[in-house]
């Protein structure tokens, strides 16, 4: 039973945490692709920017959350979402829109977004410094330990307060997005434009509005993902370095341009990562006596070492591009 608890803590919870963050990031990437048809490489830095805005606001008003018993960082999140959405719209106006107006090929926009990524990283570093910082400035990170009511179970299931918030916020974000895309006039217009931009225009849909709405949603979601990740671990100016590959892998695994695919892809990549670094030796321990004596199990039986975690999404990406280039859901072939 202790082994099961170990598995829940290190795979089920850890995988859901990583999966949720990748999923929210990948939704943004996929929405931008489906409306503007380019891979937005600055997306992970928009996530970092969102988290940095939360850090700034939390440092300015560290006690804001105490009165209602919520981490201050979470109270600042909506404001950070607005700021990040504004940044996204501003970046589009300043850099991508002029390129689109020239009718450039998508690859030019991709390169442009690489430039934006470098610029954002520099800017964030300039103000935040290079070290890691906790988003819990004035308050304490609660840790919940749930002891299982079974005999012989010593280890509790451990879940932290930010992880619980992460699950709730992910669920709310996904449901809200679903309702927006399928029920609202603007959301349907967004899907229409993703299907056929010329016909959308011929129906009287103002495509500039849809582009702006896309940036607002992608920016807001990026702020959520960046903040929740920074709450779970710490804020670092180079967060995007660890995020970019997995969220693109997630978007492609799910089928580019497919929001539900991005969610599925996020969890596939998140769980693949945690399973790859999980030490399987622990699960085999109860059966040690029944194993043949000559079989000496190494104490660490993980597929890859934690320091090589980043290769997992890369491997998944290559595999999916080779075997199923349109992704799990049918996405646009790129």
């Amino acid at each position: 039973m202790n082994e099961l608890v170990f598995f829940i803590n290190n795979v089920v919870i850890a995988g859901s945490v990583t999966g949720s963050i990748y999923a929210i990031g990948a939704i943004g990437v996929t929405l931008i692709f489906s409306i503007m048809r380019f891979a937005h490489f600055a997306h992970a830095d928009m996530m970092t920017f969102g988290a940095f805005m939360v850090l700034l606001l939390t440092t300015l008003f560290p006690a804001a959350g105490a009165s209602i018993g919520v981490p201050t960082a979470l109270i600042m999140l909506p404001l950070a979402m607005v700021l990040t959405a504004a940044l996204a719209v501003g970046i589009d106006k300043a850099f991508y829109k002029p390129l689109r107006a020239h009718g450039v090929k998508p690859i030019v926009l991709v390169i442009g977004s690489l430039g934006v990524t470098l610029m954002l990283q520099g800017l964030i570093r300039l103000f935040s410094g290079t070290g890691g910082q906790s988003l819990y400035v004035d308050d304490r990170k609660e840790i919940f330990r749930l002891a299982l009511p079974f005999e012989g179970v010593r280890a509790p299931i451990v879940i932290t307060e930010p992880q619980l918030y992460l699950f709730v916020i992910t669920l709310v974000a996904v449901v809200a997005l679903h309702i927006f895309l399928n029920r609202s006039r603007l959301g349907k217009a967004m899907r229409a434009m993703s299907d056929n931009p010329e016909l959308a225009q011929a129906s009287g849909i103002n495509t500039n509005t849809i582009v702006a709405v896309t940036w607002v949603i992608a920016g807001g979601l990026a702020a959520i993902a960046g903040t929740l990740l920074s709450l779970d671990v710490t804020f670092k100016p180079d967060l995007s370095f660890f995020l970019l590959l997995p969220i693109f892998a997630a978007a492609i695994v799910g089928g580019v341009g497919h929001p539900y695919g991005a969610i599925a892809g996020g969890f596939v990549v998140g769980f693949a990562e945690t399973l790859a670094v999980f030490n399987w030796n622990v699960l085999l321990r109860p059966f040690r006596d029944s194993l043949p004596a000559w079989l000496e199990l190494p104490s660490n039986l993980a597929f890859v070492g934690t320091e090589y975690k980043i290769v997992v999404p890369f491997f998944i990406l290559v595999a999916i591009l080779v075997w199923r280039p349109t992704g799990l859901f049918k996405g646009k072939v790129i």
Binding site: A189, R191, E198, A200, S203
Partner: peptide, 23 residues
Amino acid sequence: FVPQEKNVFPSLTVKENLEMGAY
């Protein structure tokens, strides 16, 4: 305007296609 090709939104339902006409 009804174009010669690609004149519907393939992933939208029939009803949603029509709704887009009255956007």
